[in-house]
């Protein structure tokens, strides 16, 4: 599915002394099987932006388009099933007595048959690598396990776009790698993924396109190598290293991902 935001504006507490313009006309899109990485500092409007993708927040101006259809014309439940939103620290919303029941919450709300619900729960738990936890209480799990279960709870709706707000914050390195693997798996099955993070190294590894948000505006959007080499203050370690080498006279192109960069550096050493 293609999700498109056009000139989205958002104002918090309009008409009061606390009025803040959080988004000032943001436009971007993500296509099927594509990973869009959104980066930006704190207060840049990232979290406000993602809440517009399933209209949990209504824009003060602009449009959200789902496969070229205005999202406001869709039923809320339909929109929220198609655009799955995983908030920052999603484990704070776990509530059911067992992991299985918690993941079944969303499909149950969709009114599916019991057999279909069972299939969805099994599949989503398998995707996040948490099938062995299904009978445990979500409150007795480790932080990393809770995060997996919470993400499975959104995957169980079968979203066509998955929006992840800072999904790796507070996770150990192994869980981070698992999560990046999950994002690649979903992309390969045609799901669109929006990944919000301020860890540029991590975004560089999975994103097909990058958007930099600053003070509620899009500062740059495009391919990772275009965006990162033009915005050194947001560049991942690989890009900073290569840019420094290029500056001293070498020319090893514009690799972004770790393996590409290694290959480029290996070529340099052989040559």
């Amino acid at each position: 599915m293609r999700l498109e935001l056009r000139h989205i504006r958002h104002v918090y507490s309009p008409g009061t002394p606390f009025q803040v313009e959080a988004l000032r006309g943001v436009s971007l899109s993500v296509g099927p099987g594509e990973v869009l990485g959104i980066i930006g500092g704190t207060g840049s409007g990232k979290s406000t932006l993602v809440q517009h993708m399933n209209l949990l927040l209504e824009p003060a101006g602009g449009k959200v388009l789902v496969d070229a259809v205005d999202a406001t014309t869709l039923k809320k439940s339909e929109l929220r099933r198609r655009v799955g939103l995983v908030f920052q620290f999603p484990e704070a919303a776990l509530f059911a007595p067992t992991v299985w029941e918690d993941v079944a919450f969303a499909p149950r709300r969709l009114g599916l048959e019991e057999a279909e619900i069972g299939d969805r729960v099994r599949e989503s738990l398998a995707l996040v690598g948490a099938d062995h936890l299904k009978d445990r209480s979500p409150f007795a799990l480790s932080g990393g396990e809770q995060r997996r279960v919470a993400i499975a709870g959104v995957l169980a709706m079968g979203p066509e776009v998955l929006v992840l707000d800072e999904p790796t914050s507070g996770l150990d390195p192994a869980s981070r790698q698992d999560l990046l693997r999950l994002i690649r798996t979903l992309r390969d099955t045609g799901t669109s993924v929006v990944l919000v993070s301020h860890d540029t190294d991590e975004i560089a590894e999975v994103a097909d396109r990058i958007c930099i948000l600053e003070k509620g505006e899009v500062r740059a959007i495009g391919s990772p190598s275009e965006v990162f080499y033009a915005n050194p203050d947001f560049a991942p370690a690989t890009v900073s290293t290569v840019a420094a080498l290029n500056e001293t006279g070498w020319d090893i192109g514009h690799p972004v991902r770790f393996r590409e960069t290694l290959r480029a550096l290996a070529g340099l050493m052989e040559g």
């Binding site: 799955g84 999603p90 919450f105 709870g153």
Partner: peptide, 10 residues
């Protein structure tokens, strides 16, 4: 926050 997270799950 929790209300929004649950609303996102339908």
């Amino acid at each position: 926050k929790i209300t929004k997270a649950q609303a996102a799950r339908g």
